[in-house]
Design a protein around this nucleic acid. Structure first.
Lengths: 120, 120
DNA sequence: GCGACTACTTTGCATTGCAAGGTAACGTGC
DNA sequence: GCACGTTACCTTGCAATGCAAAGTAGTCGC
């Protein structure tokens, strides 16, 4: 299956909420988020995620804190705020309607022998 | 927060393929495509679609032709090319993997207390 | 010290979506 | 004819997003 080059800019506008979803689980630092997304072919570089985190913080959706431990090197950890949770909830609400709308258009003149869907 | 009503910028990067899918069915003209997308809350204005059609044509995914009939006023109709079909096929291939990846992240710490079943 | 690795940051660019405004052709009513 | 509304197309200018690339530090192993 086509990898990174495969999905053009599908990602656009989705990354923000995805980062929020990752932070819902627990606090994370920048590179950790990059790796998490990259492992799912959803993002390519740090140049995307770090500015995004800054924007999310400016928007009040996340807050951050430098954490210096003795085991690891200093890292800036991001945590979801109440506003961030609300935004994530809104996205979870909108997402199904969006994919349904896309698929309603996508599966029209769809190839004849592509019917692999479940039928009772 | 700032992301107000409807689907924020989920649309980004998806509109191109959707237009191709609409043209797969039959030839269409600009405003017709705008209305088709708007009826599904997928786009707001002509300022999005007309430049997009121009880009698709420059990319060789569609071709266009002025059609002047006696019933209607002159319209520029767009038609899918071979390259456009290929691009659409690639999108149909990538789309499920994309939504799966998104949902794998979205449904993790998902609904923490979302009992659909009322218990006494 | 030197290199490799981690982690964060910044710059600059291309693409995308959109509102707003503009042009032109056609039909209806006066 | 002429004004007006409608349809259809096009263009300009801007903001947001994604990303490569390059830069800054701190840490570890040698």
């Amino acid at each position: 299956m086509t990898k990174a080059a495969g999905a053009p800019q599908l990602r656009k506008g989705v990354l923000g909420p995805l980062v929020l979803a990752l932070l819902e689980e627990r606090e994370r630092y920048g590179l950790e988020i990059v790796r998490e997304l990259a492992s799912r072919d959803l993002v390519a570089s740090e140049g995307t995620v770090y500015p995004l985190l800054t924007r999310l913080q400016d928007a009040g959706a996340v807050e951050s804190e430098w954490i210096v431990s003795e085991r690891d090197r200093p890292r800036r950890f991001y945590r979801l705020t109440g506003a961030g949770r609300a935004e994530l909830a809104a996205f979870r609400t909108d997402w199904p309607a969006f994919t349904r709308a896309v698929e309603s258009i996508l599966t029209r003149g769809d190839s004849p022998d592509q019917r692999r869907e479940v039928h009772p």
